[in-house]
């Protein structure tokens, strides 16, 4: 299943946030979206997953989600969004509970997904007992449990410290190599974008428009070793973003 954004425009209280966004997320690929803060990245992602309605334009699903997919468009949030009163296993199970699966079937999926994300030892822990990195791993496990057709990630590593971010980035790359998921990955961190993105869309400052979409055709598994080549892409992105970020920084907030 591909995801296609056509002519998407949105206005919050008279102030345009997104203007004429056209994007394509082909199946099995990761699209990274970068842009200065406040340019509407989170808004765009909420519209991709149907949590908000755009004023104009549309988000289209092209083709059917794969067999056995429970929740085609699945989010991974910046602040994890785990229920603090549920254990790790309970949080993963939550995503499966309204789907007419038997109790045994839910338990089987939870066990399976916890094993795949190496969280089985933590199944009865409460979120407050886990580090930030482990909490985000639980959120990733929860997302995988519903076998999504497309993962929507809103700065999933931004709440973590630099070392944990590095570890989780390796996890995400490993996961993509094994499972080949489709994703839209929103970030303001260019290093993350060039590590994970097959393509990187650069948004302008508010109102966000697509300034450019950069193709990075280096295989994901080689990127950790070929950092200098990635740095070239990263510099290119920074040149595109630099004035936008500087201008966005000078703007007065009027909301």
């Amino acid at each position: 299943m591909d995801l296609r954004v056509v002519g998407l425009t949105h206005v919050y209280a008279g102030a345009p946030v997104l203007q004429d966004i056209d994007l394509e997320i082909p199946s099995g690929r990761i699209l990274c979206v970068v842009g200065p803060s406040g340019c509407g990245k989170s808004t765009l992602l909420r519209m991709l997953g149907g949590l908000e309605r755009p004023d104009a334009g549309a988000v289209l699903q092209v083709g059917e989600p794969p067999e056995g997919c429970l929740n085609p468009l699945t989010y991974i949030f910046q602040d994890f969004a785990l229920l603090p009163w549920r254990s790790v296993a309970g949080n993963v199970a939550l995503a499966l509970e309204d789907r007419r699966l038997g109790r045994a079937e839910i338990a089987r999926i939870v066990d399976d997904v916890l094993a795949r994300t190496r969280l089985s030892a933590y199944r009865d822990a409460l979120p407050r007992q886990l580090s930030g990195g482990m909490r985000q791993r639980v959120a990733i496990a929860r997302a995988l449990a519903v076998r999504p057709a497309c993962l929507l990630m809103d700065e999933p590593l931004s709440a973590l410290d630099a070392q944990t971010r590095e570890l989780l980035m390796d996890d995400l790359v490993g996961l993509w190599l094994r499972e080949g998921f489709t994703a839209c990955y929103v970030t303001h961190n260019l290093a993350e974008a060039v590590r994970l993105g097959h393509r990187v869309a650069v948004l302008s400052r508010r109102p966000g428009r697509v300034r450019e979409v950069i193709e990075i055709d280096m295989p994901l598994e080689e990127r950790a070793e070929r950092m200098p080549e990635l740095a070239v892409h990263e510099r290119r992105l920074w040149q595109l973003l630099r004035e936008e970020a500087a201008a966005a920084d000078q703007e007065l907030a009027d909301v």
């Binding site: 997953g49 949590l51 429970l70 929740n71 468009l73 699945t74 989010y75 949030f77 602040d79 969004a81 229920l83 009163w85 939550l94 995503a95 509970e97 309204d98 789907r99 929860r142 519903v146």
Partner: peptide, 23 residues
């Protein structure tokens, strides 16, 4: 954000009230 999370996983309104809002 917990309520948005519930909606994004396709939970019903009643489930969101029972499992997220009440606790």
């Amino acid at each position: 954000t917990l309520i948005r999370m519930g909606q994004s996983f396709g939970l019903s309104r009643l489930s969101i009230i029972r499992k997220i809002v009440l606790p």
